[in-house]
C-alpha cells in the first residue's frame, strides 16, 4: 500500500518537473521570438504551452485522485499541496512565454528594438535559471536553494523596470506599449518562480513563508 503511494507521489513530482522543463524551453523560445521572430516560433511556443496545459490537467486529476484515495498527511500532504500550487505557477509561466512570443510579433515589419531585447533577454534568462533553481529546491527539499530566489527576482525587477523606463522615455510609439507588456510578462515569470520556491520551503519547513517583493498570484 505504502509502496504504491510512494510511487504515485514520485510520479506526481516527476510530472511537475516535466512541466518545469517544458516551461524553461518556453522561456528560451520567448527569447528566440524576441531576437529573431519568425512565424514558426509562435507554433513552437503554442505547442509547448499546450504540453504544459496537458500536464497541468493531469496533475490536477492525479492530485484529486490521491486526496480521495490516499488521504495524505504530514510531509506527504505538503508535497501534494506543493505540487498542486507549483503546477498552477508553471501553467501561468508557460502562458506568459506564449504571450511574449505574440507580443514580439513585428509591428509594421519592425522587430522588437535591439535595446529593448538587450534588457529583456537577461531578465528571461534569469527567469529560466530561477525556474530551474526553484524546481531543484522542491525536488531536493533544499531550503538554501529556495532562499536564493528573492535576490534573483530583485535583479529581474531591476531589468524589467529599466525596460519600462526606456519605453516611457521613448514616448508613444509602435513598441512602447508592447514593451510595457513584455516587461510585465518577464517579471511575472520570475515572480512565479519565487512562488515555486515558497512551495519548496513549505514542503521542507511546514511554514507558509512569503518572500516579499514578488506578486505572482
Amino acid at each position: 500500500m505504502r509502496a504504491e503511494f510512494d510511487a504515485e507521489l514520485q510520479r506526481l513530482e516527476a510530472e511537475v518537473q516535466e512541466a518545469g522543463n517544458v516551461t524553461v524551453q518556453g522561456i528560451r523560445g520567448a527569447i528566440v521570438a524576441l531576437e529573431d521572430w519568425e512565424p514558426p516560433i509562435l507554433d513552437h511556443l503554442t505547442a509547448l504551452d499546450e504540453r504544459v496545459d496537458v500536464i497541468y490537467r493531469q496533475v490536477e486529476t492525479d492530485v484529486e485522485q490521491m486526496l480521495a484515495r490516499q488521504a495524505p498527511v504530514a510531509t506527504d500532504l505538503r508535497i501534494v499541496l506543493g505540487v498542486l500550487y507549483t503546477n498552477v505557477h508553471l501553467e501561468r509561466m508557460s502562458h506568459n512565454c506564449l504571450r511574449i512570443g505574440r507580443l514580439a510579433t513585428p509591428v509594421d515589419g519592425a522587430a522588437v528594438p535591439r535595446e529593448m531585447v538587450a534588457l529583456l533577454k537577461p531578465a528571461l534568462l534569469r527567469g529560466a535559471e530561477m525556474t530551474r533553481v526553484a524546481l531543484d529546491a522542491f525536488a531536493l527539499r533544499d531550503e538554501a536553494r529556495a532562499r536564493e530566489l528573492p535576490e534573483m527576482d530583485e535583479l529581474v525587477d531591476h531589468e524589467t523596470g529599466a525596460l519600462v523606463q526606456l519605453a516611457l522615455e521613448r514616448g508613444p510609439g509602435a513598441w512602447s506599449g508592447n514593451a510595457i507588456f513584455l516587461a510585465r510578462s518577464a517579471e511575472r515569470i520570475a515572480d512565479h518562480a519565487v512562488r515555486i520556491a515558497e512551495q519548496a520551503l513549505y514542503v521542507v519547513t511546514a511554514r507558509r513563508i512569503e518572500f516579499s517583493g514578488s506578486s505572482a498570484a
Binding site: 498527511v73 504530514a74 510531509t75 500532504l77 505538503r78 511546514a206
Partner: peptide, 11 residues
C-alpha cells in the same frame, strides 16, 4: 500532528 508532526516517529 497530521500536518507537521515534530517527531519523526509520529511522522
Amino acid at each position: 500532528m497530521f500536518t507537521n508532526p515534530q517527531d519523526s516517529r509520529t511522522e
